[in-house]
């Protein structure tokens, strides 16, 4: 709770959306959302595919114009000041749009030129980024010769060339191997220390839980929850989760034994959520001779599935 000494009023709002809406014909991709992001914060947008995460991010770098509502970044409006916004924003898009006509280092130098960065500075920054993302050996290779991992790293490096105040990362680690995910996470942590504001969309709940100060969960174009990962877990799930094989007979016993627990059936699995710590299940498991079980801490994935999960059957 020491976090609260930075009361929200004194903190600097860098991104502000009010009634932000994006419509395609009859389809509403983003449906009148309001949110604020503070300077230096790392905010994760989570949601199922088609929830409106990428559309929201694309509106932030003026790639898509909002249908209605307001969105401002660093005091500039996306509708009127797109050039100013794009100067202070760095973007790592979901798809690979590296310039295949150029080598690795040329990709960075040419991209820096779009920002008006001089050739000398561009080369210096490019080499710094290549060193950080461990791509020096590929410096003069064609980008087509890079693996998926390396392309992601190069896209990340490219997003940092203009020393952005706000970094937009649309699924930065999708399809990466664990080593590279950790490299990307490390980069994000370093940028957080430098007070760079980071917006991240991801499907990986562990990633969001580890990196994000705050999570915004979206579904059907609406924000359905907004909060710190730990608080959301506590509020929606509790503390501990017991997972065991489906057994209908056990359900009433569990409900009787653990009055504050919630039981869910997921296919062949039962999940018992409780606000109590680890040890609470011990005597129960012993008494009913349950061998096949897992006890773990509640996590963000539980929250996500509870809030957006279809195909889940809730037992009450």
């Amino acid at each position: 709770m020491e976090w609260n000494i930075f009361s929200q009023e004194t903190r600097d709002v860098i991104i502000k959306a009010t009634g932000l809406t994006k419509r395609y014909g009859d389809f509403v991709a983003v449906d009148g959302v309001d949110f604020e992001v503070y300077r230096g914060e790392c905010v994760g947008f989570l949601g199922p595919n088609g929830a409106g995460k990428t559309t929201t991010v694309r509106m932030m770098y003026c790639f898509l114009p909002p249908t209605s509502g307001n969105l401002s970044i660093a005091g500039f409006s996306v509708q009127a000041d797109d050039r100013e916004i794009k100067c202070v924003v760095g973007v790592a898009p979901q798809e690979d749009n590296l310039d295949v006509d150029f080598s690795v280092v040329e990709n960075l130098v040419v991209y820096a030129r779009y920002f008006g960065i001089s050739k000398v500075d561009a080369l210096k920054r490019a080499d710094e980024q290549l060193a950080f993302f461990q791509l020096q050996e590929k410096r003069d290779m064609s980008v087509e010769a890079l693996s998926t991992d390396m392309k992601r790293r190069l896209i990340f490096a490219r997003a940092l060339l203009n020393n952005p105040q706000v970094l937009l990362l649309d699924e930065p680690t999708t399809g990466l191997d664990p080593q590279v995910r950790h490299l990307v996470w490390d980069a994000i942590r370093q940028l957080k220390k430098l007070q760079v504001t980071i917006i991240l969309t991801t499907h990986y709940m562990d990633e969001a839980e580890i990196l994000c100060d705050r999570i915004i969960i979206v579904d059907h174009g609406k924000i359905i929850e907004d909060g710190k990962p730990k608080e959301l877990i506590k509020r929606y799930i509790g503390e501990t989760v017991l997972e065991l094989d489906y057994n209908e007979a056990l359900i009433p016993i569990i409900k009787e034994t653990f009055s504050d627990a919630r039981v869910e059936v997921v296919g062949e699995l039962m999940q018992v959520f409780t606000p109590k710590p680890y040890g609470v299940f011990e005597s129960f498991l012993h008494e009913h001779r349950i061998q096949n079980f897992t006890i773990r801490k509640a996590n963000l994935e539980d929250v996500f599935l509870k809030l957006t999960g279809r195909g889940l059957r809730e037992v009450d």
Partner: peptide, 8 residues
């Protein structure tokens, strides 16, 4: 797409 993410 890549270029329009810059001030151009």
């Amino acid at each position: 797409d890549a270029i329009v993410a810059t001030p151009i």
